[in-house]
C-alpha cells in the first residue's frame, strides 16, 4: 500500500456537484417520503360493535380466570359467570356473524376476497411503493451519471475488508480503502441517515428506508394480525381453560371470619 505517498487529488467540483447533491437529495427524499406516507395512511377504521364484542369476549374469560385462585366473588357467582361464558362460547353467541351454521365451511376466509383485509394490504403496498420507487430512481441516477466516481476520502485508515463496502463500482485492487466511491456513498447514506431523520422528524418517522428493506412485506402483514383468526376455534379452546380454572377457584373471603378474629387476637375455638 502506497496510498500515503502516491496521493489522489479530487477536484473540488466533485465535492460541490456530486457529493453534496447526492447527500442533499437523499435527505430531502427521506423527508418528502415521511410526509407522503403520512398522507397515505388512512385513519384506522372504526370497528363495528359486533367485531369489538367478538374480540373482547376472550378478555372476559381471561379476567375471570386470572382472578380464580383468590377470587373476589363467592363460588356460586363465579360458577354462574363461568358456566354462562362457557355456554356462550360453545353456542358461538359472541361470534360476529352469529352462531355458525352446521354445514358452513370452517376454513378462515381468504384474505384476498375479504375487502377489509384487502384494504389493509393495499395500504401496505402503497407505502411500500413510496419507499422503493424513490430509492430505485436515486440509485439509477447515481449509476448513470456518477459511475466510478471517487467522492471522498475518509479521515481514518481502514483494513482491506472494507474495500467491497466502500469502493463498490470501482474495480481497482490497489487503491487505498479510505477512498469512497459514489455508489458506496449512496449506500452509506441509505443506511446511515436514520439518525439524522430522527433529529429532524422525531422518533416515529417514516423516512428511514433501510428498515423496511429487510422485511419487504412486514408493513403489509403487521396491521392485520387478527384478520384470519378463527374466533370459533379460540372460543372452543377457552372453554377448557374455563373449566380448569373453575376447579382452582377459591373465594378470598371464604375464611374471613377466622382471619379477622386472628388478626384482632381473639381466641378461635377449635370446635
Amino acid at each position: 500500500m502506497s496510498g500515503d505517498t502516491v496521493s489522489l487529488y479530487l477536484d473540488s467540483q466533485i465535492r460541490d456537484w456530486v457529493l453534496f447533491p447526492i447527500t442533499l437529495v437523499m435527505i430531502l427524499v427521506g423527508v418528502l417520503r415521511h410526509y407522503i406516507v403520512l398522507l397515505l395512511q388512512s385513519a384506522p377504521k372504526k370497528q363495528p360493535k359486533e367485531v369489538i364484542r367478538e374480540q373482547r369476549a376472550l378478555v372476559r374469560s381471561q379476567i375471570l380466570r386470572a382472578t380464580a385462585s383468590s377470587s373476589p366473588i363467592p363460588p356460586t357467582y363465579y360458577k354462574s359467570i363461568s358456566q354462562y361464558l362457557s355456554q356462550a362460547f360453545a353456542d358461538g353467541t359472541y361470534l360476529k356473524d352469529g352462531p355458525p351454521q352446521g354445514d358452513a365451511p370452517t376454513t378462515p376466509p381468504n384474505p384476498l376476497t375479504d375487502p377489509a383485509a384487502m384494504d389493509g394490504m393495499m395500504a401496505g403496498m402503497k407505502t411500500q411503493m413510496v419507499m422503493m420507487v424513490p430509492q430505485m430512481v436515486i440509485m439509477g441516477w447515481i449509476n448513470f451519471f456518477f459511475q466510478g466516481f471517487v467522492l471522498i476520502k475518509l479521515p481514518f485508515p481502514l483494513t482491506l475488508g472494507f474495500k467491497s463496502m466502500l469502493q463498490r463500482g470501482i474495480e481497482t485492487p490497489d487503491m487505498d480503502v479510505r477512498w469512497v466511491s459514489s455508489l458506496s456513498w449512496y449506500f452509506l447514506n441509505f443506511f446511515g441517515l436514520n439518525g439524522l431523520y430522527r433529529l429532524i422528524l422525531g422518533n416515529e418517522n417514516a423516512a428511514d428506508s433501510s428498515r423496511d428493506m429487510s422485511t419487504p412485506f412486514a408493513a403489509a402483514a403487521a396491521p392485520q394480525p387478527g384478520q384470519a383468526q378463527d374466533y370459533n376455534k379460540l372460543f372452543k379452546a377457552e372453554r377448557d381453560n374455563l373449566e380448569f380454572s373453575e376447579g382452582l377457584h377459591s373465594w378470598v373471603a371464604k375464611d374471613a371470619d377466622t382471619r379477622i378474629l386472628q388478626k384482632y387476637g381473639r381466641p378461635i375455638p377449635t370446635s
Binding site: 363467592p74 363460588p75 356460586t76 357467582y77 371470619d257 377466622t258 379477622i260 378474629l261 384482632y264 381473639r266 381466641p267 378461635i268 375455638p269 370446635s271
Partner: peptide, 18 residues
Amino acid sequence: PSQTAPPTTSNLSSLDEL
C-alpha cells in the same frame, strides 16, 4: 341464596363481641 357457609356459632359470638 348463594349457599355461603355461615361462621360457626362460637366464631359468630366472638365476632359479635369484637
